[in-house]
Design a protein around this nucleic acid. Structure first.
Lengths: 155, 155
DNA sequence: CCAATTTCGGATAAAATCCTCCGAAACAAC
DNA sequence: GTTGTTTCGGAGGATTTTATCCGAAATTGG
């Protein structure tokens, strides 16, 4: 509905890393297989997040990725700026090139508060918080195995 | 940020038709040139909206498209169901196949209220309301001509 | 140094979305 | 009926997004 696959993978991967002991590099292969996403593609995304100064990357035997110091405080909005670009918040709902308070599309007035709410929540949700939510066991980062999935839909 | 081009074109076109005297067919060509969107592509979209029982279409000399009776009461959500499909509201923000109150992604609890708000607003905004907003002159359906655009950015 | 492992970077493929073209069918005016 | 206009329907092209592949560079351990 809102996020590209690229963004979803990026967020999932970062939360996953945040659930792991900080400082210990996590392999791309491990992340991809845990999340069930294509590892070659995820590798590209990870590379990008490195360039965005969110991750450290180490090559070779004890290589992998880990969060930079302080990166657990990163809000989702910041991540989306890298993966979706600034147009994510700037673009008009109806696709007008220019749509501001001064000259707006007919949805503008109703949409603006919603957009602000979205941005606020995405800013508020940090990797740290989300990782904790996962660690608590109350929330999942990956799909249920298909066996369980079939079972739960039967209940 | 949220809507495909197809959806944006569909909404724009429908609002445009709603601003015109009801019952008088509007040419696809006219809609496309007014909105500044590719007319062959818009034609496909219009065709789809016909199949969704939102529009009547007439071929030949006095042909064109016009809203079905009562279609002015259609909310944007209903239109998006045709153009984006039901997954538009159903999909998980983080991309999980299954994400419900029972078993959820770490964003679920925060996201759900937002999603509901979005759906509510999209349901509330009908073609009629949006057409009136445009007719009032307070809101625009198309981009400003580039000459004016340059001028406004200079102020 | 050598072998194994991992990320890096570029090229390329596959799929989805966006967009175009064209002949056919329907319709109005003459 | 003929001509001109418009939508219909299917085929196909272009672009963007998603995904794969592979050789090179970096790193560790023997």
């Amino acid at each position: 509905m809102i996020l590209s696959r690229t963004s979803q993978y990026a967020i999932q991967a970062l939360i996953f890393i945040a659930t792991r002991p900080s400082g210990e590099p996590v392999l791309n292969r491990e992340i991809a297989s845990y999340l069930g996403v294509p590892s070659a593609y995820l590798a590209k995304i990870m590379q990008n997040l490195c360039k965005g100064n969110l991750l450290y990357s180490y090559r070779g035997r004890l290589g992998g990725f880990c969060l930079r110091e302080g990166a657990e405080k990163t809000g989702l909005m910041q991540i989306l700026m890298m993966t979706e670009g600034p147009s994510f918040t700037q673009d008009c709902v109806l696709g007008l090139k220019v749509c501001s308070d001064a000259t707006a599309c007919p949805m503008h007035a109703k949409w603006l508060p919603i957009k602000q709410k979205i941005v606020a929540i995405l800013n508020d949700q940090t990797l740290e918080k989300l990782a904790r939510a996962v660690q608590s066991g109350k929330y999942r980062l990956t799909d249920l195995p298909s066996t369980l999935l079939a079972a739960s839909s039967r209940t």
